[in-house]
Amino acid sequence: MKKIFSIISLLSVLTVAFISCKKTGGDNVFSEYDIVDQGAKALIKVNYNVAFFNNPGVQVKINDVRVSGLILNRTPFPGGGFNTLGSNTGDYLPVDPGANTKVSITIPKRGTNIDSVEIYTTTVAATAGKRYSLHVTDTAARKSLFVEEDASIPDSGFVRMRFVNLMPTVPSVDLWVGTNKVASNIAYMSISDKFVLPTSQASITTKWDVRAAGAANLTTNIIATYTSASTFNNQRVYTAYAIGYPDKTDATRKPYISFYYVR
Rank of each mutant, 00 (worst) to 15 (best):
K2E: 11
N100G: 07
D91W: 01
S104E: 12
N217S: 12
P198Q: 14
N100R: 11
S172Y: 04
V182L: 14
S9H: 12
I257N: 00
I71Y: 10
D27V: 09
L14D: 13
F52M: 02
D247E: 14
T227G: 00
S190Y: 08
T231D: 02
P255R: 00
V262T: 08
V60M: 09
I153M: 10
I19D: 07
P168V: 10
S184T: 15
V210Y: 02
T75I: 12
D115T: 05
L10A: 14
Q235P: 01
R131T: 14
I7E: 14
L93I: 11
E32R: 13
A140E: 10
Y188D: 01
R131G: 02
D247R: 04
T101H: 14
V58W: 01
T89G: 04
V50Y: 05
S184G: 04
N88T: 08
R211T: 05
F82S: 00
D64S: 07
G214C: 08
R236T: 11
F5Y: 14
Y120A: 06
R211S: 09
T239Y: 02
A151F: 15
R66E: 08
L11P: 01
A215L: 15
D193N: 13
I222Q: 10
N54E: 09
P78M: 04
T239P: 00
S144N: 06
I7P: 00
N233A: 13
R131L: 09
K181L: 08
A187N: 04
S200Y: 11
T123S: 15
M161T: 05
G129E: 09
K22T: 10
G81F: 04
G214Q: 05
V262E: 04
N73H: 06
L14A: 15
F195N: 02
V36P: 02
S192E: 04
W176Q: 00
K109I: 11
V46H: 03
S12N: 12
T24D: 14
D174H: 01
V65Q: 12
L218A: 03
Y132E: 13
S12G: 12
K143Q: 07
A213W: 08
T231S: 10
D96G: 07
N221S: 13
K23Y: 08
T139S: 15
I62T: 05
V159Q: 02
Y48H: 01
T122S: 12
S230T: 05
N73V: 03
L197T: 02
N100W: 09
T137H: 07
L197K: 05
K102L: 15
V36E: 11
I114L: 12
S190H: 08
V159Y: 02
G57Q: 03
S152N: 10
V13S: 08
G111W: 10
P246S: 12
Y226R: 00
L70E: 03
K22Y: 12
V170S: 14
V46R: 03
S258P: 03
